[in-house]
């Protein structure tokens, strides 16, 4: 606040000083004329003196301005050097510029130290995640194995079998949850970098479809692909295929037997668009904006298997590649999810 006021008062100061100068000069000239009457020699001398004074004043002002501009320029240069980590402009000079430069460097150092601390913390979290994923794997597969062994015992009652099935399905769910969460956090913390290349999308689509084809066939759902083999997009084949697989899996899960899934791809100016439309139960309008959130499950989706992480993961994969995903749906009319992948 004070510096802002300083700027304003320096403007006012300039005005006052100019006014005093003009007043003094004209007063002096007037006084001389008044005292001595009109004498050509004296008038000449006065005019010469006054104009010399004015010129000197103007020169002085000009020099000051130049100094200020030069100072500002060196400050600008100094900040630039500091930002880009180049050599210092001033060394240990006895100038205010030098002390300012040291302060600035101190500030940048503090910021860098903070950044480093954050980086260390991030690394700790990364390690923790890989530890969790590693250490939970063995007990989990043991649980699965023991419950399967137990299920093979011939003399089990109906109730026990039912409970055993529950244990098995819950363990499988847990396994999937942990794998997805680990995948997610690896994507989020940048542990996995996507290898994006401009390649035709048809290969990616077919590889995703191949994983759900049997499931769709068992349910009597037809899958159609309309895609020009030349349609290209910048994407990571493996991860995009996983993203598409998540969407297709949902389409199969929420469609009635005898329904159909349509996959269409095409390009526009900047993005290649892949649409996946199903004839499933649809999503009500008020839920549409939430479906990409972590652990969100639609009201009518609650009775189906799932934990609400597939769409979130899909969205992460797509946006990490500079793409985008949108959804359009109506209850009873099916859902259309569109993936946009950059072309260049």
């Amino acid at each position: 606040m004070t510096s802002r006021n300083d700027v304003r008062s320096s403007k006012r100061g300039n005005f006052i000083f100019s006014a005093i100068l003009v007043l003094l000069v004209s007063g002096y000239a007037g006084r001389v004329v008044f005292l001595e009457g009109k004498q050509p020699a004296l008038t000449e001398l006065t005019v010469l003196f006054v104009s010399c004074m004015l010129i000197l004043g103007a020169l002085w002002n000009w020099m000051l301005r130049r100094q200020v501009t030069a100072f500002m320029n060196s400050v600008d240069e100094m900040v630039d050097r500091a930002i880009h980590g180049r050599e210092k402009l001033t060394h240990f000079d006895e100038t205010s510029l030098s002390s300012l430069e040291h302060k600035l460097l101190r500030y940048i150092e503090i910021n860098q130290a903070n950044e480093q601390n954050l980086e260390t913390e991030k690394n700790t979290i990364k390690e923790l995640i890989s530890d969790i994923s590693h250490q939970t794997k063995t007990p989990l597969s043991n649980i699965l194995l023991y419950s399967q062994l137990l299920a093979e015992t011939p003399e089990l009652g109906g109730d026990t079998r039912l409970l055993l099935n529950q244990i098995e399905s819950q363990s499988e769910k847990l396994e999937w949850l942990i794998t997805s969460l680990v995948k997610l956090s690896r994507l989020e913390t940048g542990m996995i970098t996507l290898q994006s290349e401009v390649t035709p999308v048809i290969a990616t689509i077919t590889s995703a479809v191949s994983h759900i084809y049997t499931r769709a066939e068992n349910k009597g759902i037809s899958v159609q692909i309309a895609c020009d083999p030349l349609t290209k997009a910048r994407h990571d084949h493996k991860w995009t295929s996983e993203a598409l697989f998540n969407l297709l899996e949902n389409a199969v899960k929420y469609s009635e037997a005898g329904g159909s899934i349509r996959i269409a791809a095409g390009g526009n100016e900047m993005f290649t668009r892949i649409d996946i439309s199903d004839t499933g139960m649809g999503i009500p309008g008020n839920e549409l904006e939430h479906i990409f959130k972590r652990f969100y499950r639609g009201h009518s989706a609650r009775e189906y298997e799932g934990i609400g992480i597939g769409l979130y993961l899909t969205q992460k994969i797509i946006s990490l590649q500079g793409g985008f995903i949108t959804a359009a749906s109506g209850v009873g009319t099916g859902t259309k999810l569109s993936i946009f992948l950059p072309q260049i």
Partner: peptide
């Protein structure tokens, strides 16, 4: 509508 969608996606991406 096609171009609209692209422009919106870009706006959203710029915001992020």
């Amino acid at each position: 509508s096609k171009t609209s969608q692209e422009v919106l996606i870009l706006l959203k991406q710029m915001s992020e």
